[in-house]
Design a protein around this nucleic acid. Sequence first.
DNA 1: GTCTATACAGAGATAGAC
DNA 2: GTCTATCTCTGTATAGAC
Lengths: 238, 238
Amino acid sequence: MNRVGTQKKILDAAEKLLAHNGYHATTLRAITAEAGVNVAAVNYHFGSKEALLDNVIERRIVPLNSARMEMLESVRADALTRGRRPSVRDLMHAFVAPTISFRDSGKGARNFIALVGRTLGEPPSAVQHSFFRFMEPFIKLMLGSLKEALPELSDDLLLLRFHLSVGMLVYTIRMADESDILGQTRALSDIGNKTIGKSKGGSGVGSKAPAKRPVDTANTTEKLVDEVVNFMTAGMEA
Amino acid sequence: MNRVGTQKKILDAAEKLLAHNGYHATTLRAITAEAGVNVAAVNYHFGSKEALLDNVIERRIVPLNSARMEMLESVRADALTRGRRPSVRDLMHAFVAPTISFRDSGKGARNFIALVGRTLGEPPSAVQHSFFRFMEPFIKLMLGSLKEALPELSDDLLLLRFHLSVGMLVYTIRMADESDILGQTRALSDIGNKTIGKSKGGSGVGSKAPAKRPVDTANTTEKLVDEVVNFMTAGMEA
DNA sequence: GTCTATACAGAGATAGAC
DNA sequence: GTCTATCTCTGTATAGAC
């Protein structure tokens, strides 16, 4: 077996299992069994379980960040040719759209996004460091652009609001998770707003409760992006 | 040792260690050593490590939820006496203020909030279930009130925006964490906006970079609450 | 070089002595 | 109620087969 082949098998298996169960709940033995390799292969090829996680993330985050960076630079270039500064809305869109589009671009990507949503809130925190190391150029350019678009905001306030936006986006992509928090509050809201049902469905049969419908996939990817961008833009400009 | 005394010692030790290291990185042996009891005491008194986590959370979440519920009902009552509906701002304030105030109300509380911020994104997901079970009455009343305040919004959109707000708040309270993500982007922003420094500090000496200042504690608790509420309100009403 | 088999320390859990 | 002994399973390290 050649080197890259084995590594890819391990990475794929790890991405899948880590996304579903989180870091600590996923054992190396489960990963290596799924990949069809020996237990020691992980330590041989990657050095440690944590280094494996790092490699899983790196493999996807690089192209994702390229997409974000491209869109941000495109927004800036477009504004420049019109002799204007990019709008807050366009900037936030360059942040949100590539992320959510990437999430919805395939099963491996969706696994990966779920993994990121989990891992970011979970030790080992070294992952967070490497994660933000990859994002550094984008965040720098983003904050600089936002500062131009919102010159009246103090540095502290701009940074706080940007972080609130990051929190929103992290939470949004976590909606992809099957063990998600959304389903539970959806059930709650269906109970809480029991009077609304009548005006919605129209007359006649088939007015059953659409119980299992997840919040985000109820709309298309584009509509979700638009709604998140709407919220962020309003908050940034508040 | 009497029963409750031992349990309280274990709960205190667990809260402290879990908040700092997360669930899986904290061993029962470390907890029982800190509490000064035997390793088996946890399994005897609580049944399992996960059940211990559940008890740690329950002990704090009940009074916190009472505070939130009280403020929400107070807001609704106040509006009622004036013959009006509660504003979106007042509703979001009843959500945010007790949470952040509680976080800043003492060391144990701060530990707990850091713990919640960690645990919510981390398996075992059973914790999430019990967490939302406690929050259910509040969320139901909150969503109902928001629906009254924003009747033009569809159910889906209202729920999505409320979830984005929850994501923001979760992220906000995680700023309490010493291993937080904010410090890193603060450093980035200090680099990115290097031109601003001049207009800020004034002339002469002492214009060193205020490197270690965390984002949230730069302002008072009240200011942080106000800023988060501002952002949420703008987003909800977008 | 690539991989397997295996040993090892430390984890959570549990049964039973006290 | 408390503690000791012990069980299984984890991540990791290493020796050696191919």
